[in-house]
């Protein structure tokens, strides 16, 4: 295995990690406030379809990416109504929401977008100077804009959660909501905000999937990436910087399949083994992250004092 292969695996891996990273950042915000959103996959499908639609209508990739943000926020409103206002069970309704999103996006795709190939994708931008660094330059600084934005977003999410009052309130709503309420804050409002922001990020992640890596929308284009994001959040212990590491791990194991024939004796493995590798690595990672502790109130519906349900 020579250095060209290694560089190529990492270049592809960083590009492949981007949608998952966006989604995992969104999930980290959501879970920190005490809502377990298992519907990531469905939200990402919504973003992917939005972006593909914009490209088909000739509005361009940038419009598609931007439009996915309000679409995600809208989905977030619906989900938080279900989880916060109605107090529905988060795990099972998240799974059922994924079924609904798969059904609706399949329907709209078959009805309006079928047979339309999306061949354009985002251009790679080489950062002057930095992209000249051997190895690292090609891997990190010759990527498309969504990669840079994702890394920036990780920093911003960290600052939001750990360096602002709002972030402190969000985290308290995920750890001890009753105490948050006693302090005079509205837990439902904080949770609405977190689900809406989180969904917007996930939806944008879905859009980047179409804009940069997959090159078009097909039925179930996300292929489990939303669930991988769920695992990466646990692996990264709800810390945006560690989450980047988890996403890179996933992206690189996914990229290996494209270089499988250059990997010496491993090239004899069947294609299915390479396709399964990211999922196996995810399980191993979740097992190794056994000491990760979920935010205390994550997944538990909250009933405000005085309200009856």
């Amino acid at each position: 295995m020579n250095s060209d292969v290694i560089i190529s695996v990492f270049v592809t891996g960083i590009a492949l990690m981007t949608p998952v990273l966006w989604a995992a950042l969104g999930e980290a915000i959501t879970e920190r406030a005490g809502i377990l959103n298992i519907g990531i996959e469905g939200v990402m499908l919504g973003g992917a379809l939005t972006c593909a639609w914009c490209i088909r209508e000739g509005a361009g990739i940038t419009t598609g990416l931007l439009l996915s943000i309000p679409v995600g926020a809208l989905i977030g409103v619906i989900l938080s109504y279900l989880w916060v206002t109605r107090g529905a069970d988060q795990i099972v309704s998240g799974i059922i929401f994924n079924l609904l999103a798969l059904g609706v996006t399949t329907l709209l795709f078959e009805e309006y977008l079928k047979g339309v190939g999306v061949v354009t994708s985002l251009d790679k931008i080489a950062i002057p100077g930095l992209s000249e660094i051997p190895w690292l330059g090609e891997i990190l600084f010759t990527q498309n804009i969504t990669v840079y934005l994702a890394l920036l977003a990780a920093v911003l999410v960290f600052l939001l959660l750990h360096r602002t009052w709002f972030g402190l309130y969000l985290r308290s709503a995920g750890e001890k909501p009753r105490a948050t309420e006693t302090a005079g804050l509205s837990v439902p409002r904080l949770r609405y905000a977190s689900v809406i922001i989180g969904s917007a990020l996930m939806c944008f992640g879905g859009a980047t999937l179409v804009a940069s890596t997959s090159g078009g929308f097909v039925t179930n284009v996300t292929a489990g990436q939303g669930f991988v994001a769920l695992a990466i959040v646990v692996l990264g212990r709800w810390n945006p910087f560690l989450i980047i590491g988890g996403a890179v791990l996933f992206g690189v194991t996914q990229a290996l399949q494209f270089q499988a024939q250059s990997l010496g004796f491993l090239s004899a493995l069947p294609a299915e083994a390479w396709l399964a590798l990211p999922y196996v690595v995810t399980i191993v990672a979740v097992v190794l992250a056994k000491s990760s502790r979920y935010p205390n109130a994550c997944g538990v519906p909250f009933t405000p004092a005085g309200a009856t349900r």
Binding site: A223, G224, F227, L230, A231, V234, A276, V280, I283, V286
Partner: peptide
């Protein structure tokens, strides 16, 4: 997470 990954 584990059962979903095992599905794929």
């Amino acid at each position: 997470i584990v059962t979903l990954m095992l599905n794929f």
